[in-house]
Amino acid sequence: MSVLAALGRVILGLFAAIGRVSIFGAQTLSHMLRPPFYPREFALALLNIGWLSLPVVGLTAIFTGGALALQIYAGGARFNAEAVVPQIVAIGMVRELGPVLVGLMIAARVTSSIAAEIATMKVTEQIDALVTLSTHPMKYLTAPRVLAATLVVPLLVAVGDVIGIFGGYAVATGTLGFNAAAYIQNTVDFLQLRDITSSLAKGAVFGCIAALMGCYFGMNTGRGAQGVGRATKGSVEAAAVLILAANFVLTGVFFSL
């Protein structure tokens, strides 16, 4: 009985949390659509989330693409299918690894910094100060960040896809003896439009999740330095899990229907 009760409590808590996050998301959307708008905040968010994430995205993608090429070559060699390296690297990067790795990197880099920043503002009464200065905190802090992340993370994913494929290409042509022109030709021929749109769509959803979780946990922080620490940790955990769950759902939507 007590096991059932505990399970019930956990499930109820989960639903309550989903409800709160959904309301938060809906409020964010409504603030995005209604003036006043804060273009400066939006531009800063674009810069922080997009431009400044490029190095980490590029490095993640190039090493992953390289490792992928090595594994596919080694695995393919067991049944004489080494030649599929370009095709599988392209599909693997564009459909799954590009969006997921960029999403997780954004969760690590952007979600944590948004959560810590907003939580600190909360505990030092800066959020209250915003309210007294006739500025809605969600409109000023949440809406620009979520909008910027939703728009710019797909671009980061595109960059990650390209660099990842390049990583595979560099390894394949450099050490595995592939012909450069043929490698590129195979990649281009094999990728379909659906692969690319799914990649970008995943990027948009992951970006939205990452920024939303940072803002949500930041706005709902506990008190003091400990509160800020908990909010930051919670935001990254939630963002990472939700990104992976959303990836599973989106893969299902795009490729099994």
Binding site: T124, E125, Q126, A129, L130, T132, S134
Partner: peptide, 16 residues
Amino acid sequence: FLARFGMLFQGGALFD
């Protein structure tokens, strides 16, 4: 309502 008010917070609460 808020446009009529000004407030100095005990901790300053400046936007850092």
